[in-house]
Simulated scan of single mutants.
Amino acid sequence: MAKILYSATMSLDGFIAGPGGDMSWLTEHLGPNPPIDEVIGKIGALLVGNRTFRGDDPHKGVPDKEGKPFGGGWSGPQFVLTHHAPATPVPGVTFVADLDSGVAAAKAAAGDKYVNVLGAEVARQCLDAGVLDEILVCVAPVMLGDGVRLFDHPGGTNVKLERVSLTHAPGATNLWLRVV
């Protein structure tokens, strides 16, 4: 059965995107990261937030990478949570209106692989719904000062996590956690 994994690259001060959703900061931190490359091969489907799907791309202007998940390192079914699906279909993308149907569809498509969550708001919703299994954070050596936080839940409760692994790559420290 598929597990739900939230993965993101985060600045040391806790941001996954800069102000206004700017992802250009990430471009210089997209170097080789063997543990992440291994995880990408274990992803069966994506569950993506609308803001992430329509947002900025750290691969902007890079042929064969722009607009593709993980810069073209992954392909497969994507499920985008939105109340405003585009009129024109997008190949490989299914638009879903609610979290429950999105999670069910993504898990069915992923089989025994991971459903990878892209987007802080969807990750927060998955955590609140009790369906988030694991979190993989690549901590980049930079501080952004403002932007979109990895998790933002004012007034939220403590969430117990258990470390699965801690690995290092040339441009990041990877912290893999299990939601207890």
Rank of each mutant, 00 (worst) to 15 (best):
G102Q: 15
S101M: 06
L177T: 05
E121V: 03
G156C: 00
A108E: 15
H84A: 03
L12F: 14
A97L: 01
G130T: 02
H59K: 01
G119S: 04
S165T: 08
L99W: 12
K68Q: 13
L161C: 01
T9N: 13
T167M: 06
W176P: 03
R163C: 02
G119E: 05
H153C: 08
A110I: 11
G14P: 13
S7V: 01
V137E: 13
A172Y: 09
A169V: 00
A105V: 03
T167D: 14
P34Y: 02
V164H: 08
G14A: 08
V180L: 13
V117E: 09
T173Q: 08
F70V: 02
S101Y: 14
A110D: 15
D133F: 00
A110T: 12
F79Y: 12
A45E: 14
L166P: 12
L12G: 04
E121T: 05
Y6G: 02
G31Y: 12
V148R: 03
V80Y: 13
G156A: 01
V93H: 14
G102A: 08
E38D: 15
P91W: 10
L81E: 15
G111Q: 12
A87T: 14
L177M: 11
G155Q: 08
V139C: 03
P35T: 06
C138M: 10
G111Y: 14
A172C: 11
V117G: 05
F15H: 08
G147I: 04
P141Q: 04
S101Q: 13
T27I: 05
V62I: 09
L12A: 06
A97T: 11
L30Y: 14
L30D: 12
G102Y: 09
A85P: 14
A123R: 06
G55N: 07
W74G: 08
L150A: 11
K107Y: 11
A172P: 12
L99E: 15
A169G: 08
G111V: 01
I4S: 04
V139G: 07
V48L: 04
E38R: 01
W74I: 02
